[in-house]
């Protein structure tokens, strides 16, 4: 092809791209983004269903049992604390919005776990940054960003993710995501007793705007404990009870 033509086409297209980039930075192109997302959403959803599929019955049963276990633990805590209102939690279904997972970029099936999820609900549906995303009392992640129709969820395995948590024996620590979607419980005092198969739940982290994570949402169970006598703290590796990659619907706690 003639070099002159090529240069001219390149300059025109680069100029056009820069204009788009600047307009997008100024949030002027939100409608165009929404338009493209609306067109491609059914295809994304179909592709996800074809390549990933839905969760099995056994996993569902496992989740139900874990939920019962946490409920029971919660009941014991309620009795212990003489029905202290602050230690009880429960999510009113009116405060939940169902959202379909339409994308999970940076996810390679069989190699890594999803670190971000794209949901088909956005600001128009009351979704805001910082809201918790759950599935049957299991914490899936937190809304990282949302526009009119869509939102991105930072899952527990995202390396930048951190959240306060506690075990069923009330040993508190910080949950952090690691490379490859692993979840670690850190900053647990050596004096605290944590052991394999202990359930880890959220400690509760609601901000002044009313958004955040409710207490007693299941994060996962401890699969290994790293305890060193010379360290100040002990750490534990956590495995979520839910395989996020198999989910197709999650719930956003909008209030």
């Amino acid at each position: 092809m003639p070099r002159r033509n090529l240069n001219l086409i390149f300059i025109v297209l680069i100029f056009l791209t820069l204009v788009l980039f600047i307009f997008s930075k100024l949030q002027v192109l939100n409608f165009a983004g929404n338009f493209v997302q609306n067109i491609f959403a059914p295809f994304e959803s179909a592709a996800r269903n074809i390549f990933i599929g839905n969760s099995s019955d056994l996993q569902k049963e496992n989740i139900e049992l874990a939920k019962k276990l946490v409920d029971q633990q919660k009941l014991i805590q309620d009795n212990k604390a003489l029905r202290d209102q602050f230690q009880t939690s429960g999510i009113n279904t009116q405060n939940l919005t169902a959202a379909s997972i339409i994308g999970s970029p940076s996810f390679i099936p069989g190699v890594s776990n999803p670190e971000n999820l794209i949901l088909d609900k956005g600001v128009k549906n009351g979704v805001r940054k910082g809201q918790a995303v759950i599935y049957k009392d299991n914490l899936i992640g937190i809304i990282k960003k949302s526009n009119d129709n869509y939102s991105i969820v930072a899952t527990l395995g995202l390396p930048s993710f951190s959240l306060t948590a506690k075990t069923q024996n009330d040993a508190s620590g910080i949950i952090r995501g690691q490379d490859g979607g692993q979840i670690i419980l850190e900053n647990v005092l050596l004096s605290e007793r944590i052991s394999k198969n202990d359930l880890v739940v959220t400690l509760g982290n609601i901000n002044e705007g009313g958004f955040g994570v409710l207490p007693n949402l299941i994060i996962g169970k401890i699969v290994s404990v790293n305890k060193n006598a010379s360290s100040l703290f002990q750490t534990a590796k956590i495995e979520p009870l839910i395989d996020i990659s198999t989910l197709s619907t999650v719930f956003i706690v909008i209030n």
């Binding site: 791209t17 788009l20 980039f21 600047i22 165009a32 983004g33 997302q37 970029p105 960003k145 991105i152």
Partner: peptide
Amino acid sequence: LALSLIIGVVLDALALRTIGASSL
């Protein structure tokens, strides 16, 4: 070249990134 621009725009819109970054 034109296809690169369009594909980049669609990709950025679907990944909720700043539109134009991938196209560039």
